[in-house]
Design a protein around this nucleic acid. Structure first.
Lengths: 180, 180, 180, 180
DNA sequence: AATGAATGAGCTTTCATTCAT
DNA sequence: AATGAATGAAAGCTCATTCAT
């Protein structure tokens, strides 16, 4: 079985991604996780904020996993990007178009403090770094690779937003044609 | 002087952009606007939702104005993009790095209903349409222009997000080099 | 009818005196006053703390009223003290021995901040000042009067405590013999 | 070393004296004592109430010790009172004026039951009895001694209260001039 | 049109206690 | 004896909205 702490963070993650930090009530998380009220503060002493940071971290790692799965067996950078975008689009559809960037909604929507901003920019840096690594593996110079990664990342963030506004994941699928 | 309705929408807009729909309380808006408690529902019968839609509309129009100001006197498309990005970066700095896309935070963070999504995708369409218009004026084919506009818009949305996470507007200023 | 604000402060006063600041829940006050939850913060923007300060102020004024009623028609200081103590003992009995000094329990039991301490020491100063005034009216020098007032006040505070511990108001009635 | 039970009672005592029974949380006591969550109920099966009674008992005994230390080597009753008050004033100052009567706050602030009231009145009786004993040793009749002890005790309780309100221990030091 | 009061559901968090190991 | 997890009631407070004037 999954331990209580992880279960809470995962359920919270789904909800935060859909409705944003302030759009989700603790009770809702607890109910979905099947965990009683008082338990949360045992595992997350700082409450909702801790929960959001943990949820973001889990989502961030999951995205890294998807990046790896997309690029590991790609023949070249463009193929990797395409697989990556298709996987994300599928993920978007599974959640009925209600989910955007899994960390922006959670952390940018939350309290405006250094811990949240640092966590967010750290996660973004890790994502771009990983993509750049693959770009270099496929022959790009470091500078080119960083440009490519940044171009992909920025457009991807935008696509998540536009896809949600439209309720349509095709924006994400069309991304490779736009940035490669 | 500015009428009460507009004053409310503008103050609400600043707050929504910073903290998202659910992160802003009606009282906070009322207090900042110096408007008494009971007044809101005279001007916005549907309450907070109406207020958010009005605030988004004002912000959307302001962005269109900035697009015009940037491209009207640009010699070519790339120059227009550069001016546009510099203006937005300056706007970002004025608000101490606390403000991202002026409509995403307001509407995406809000209740998940058709009215909000339609308003949001409509605004995005208008922005991209206006940019595409200028791209065509500077010689691009319609298809090229739409690609250019989309590329700029998606990256811009991403840049707003990354800039907030980093607390640094340079991402926005570096955008022209990435998308042109 | 009594206005909502006053009704709240009075009911809160009774409860605070019996159970102390932290021993009383807002809901309990609201229920006794027949006032809905949200109303409290309209009349007392700082919530429980404001309520306690208001309650203490009302109780303080009531004690001044009792001092006046006791000394105004007394032939000499000792008679005034006796009447005063008997009135307080009767008040104690009416509340079934559950009430001590009406402001100590409320304010000393509360948050340890300057506002509470200042309010409390201000009230004590007013009480002693009023008693000293009467002592001077009955012929004591200012210095004597201040001594008398302090002696009475300090013992009275102690009597309230001892009376509660014993559940017996006689300590208060025996006070005149001890301090005059 | 001090055993866990005693350590808990002492730390609880300090906190109860400052903030009253309901103003102190179990977690706070546990944390200050460096004792794990589950441990409390091994040492105090009835929980918080037991803890408060134990804390009060320790404080009561400490006060008796101070009475003895003050009167044992005093040449007369007034000297003993003076030493006693100075010691208490010093104790008050050490705790930064945040501590009043070490048992009133703990027990009067607590649940309104017989056990608490009996413990409190018993402690007060012991204190007055001990002071009366010394008064008799210094030549007072039993009746005189009981009067003296009561006068001192009641004023002392009042002084503790006034000292806290003022944040100034001088009231306690001036007590001998008022009651002797 | 304007306004302060009212409203109760809901918020995040802490509470004292009990449980299983 | 010792302990971290669990528990749900209750805490104080804010919410968006409606009402009466």
């Amino acid at each position: 079985m999954m331990d209580t702490r992880t279960k809470l963070a995962i359920e919270a993650g789904f909800l935060f991604q859909q409705k944003g930090y302030h759009g989700v009530g603790i009770s809702e998380v607890l109910e979905r996780a099947g965990v009683p009220k008082g338990s949360l503060y045992h595992h997350f002493p700082n409450g909702k904020a801790d929960l959001a940071l943990a949820a973001a971290e889990i989502a961030a790692t999951e995205v890294l996993r998807i990046i790896d799965a997309s690029f590991d067996q790609a023949g070249n950078y463009a193929n990797g990007v395409t697989t990556f975008c298709y996987k994300l689009a599928k993920y978007f559809d599974i959640h009925e178009g209600k989910i955007g960037c899994p960390v922006s909604a959670t952390l940018l929507g939350g309290p405006d403090n250094a811990a949240f901003r640092d966590a967010l920019s750290g996660i973004f840096a890790r994502w771009m770094g990983r993509i750049a690594d693959y770009a270099m593996q496929f022959g790009q110079s470091q500078q080119e690779a960083e440009q490519s990664a940044k171009r992909l990342f920025l457009s991807l963030e935008g696509s998540w937003t536009l896809a949600r506004a439209r309720g349509d994941s095709n924006v994400i699928r069309q991304l490779p044609g736009l940035v490669c």
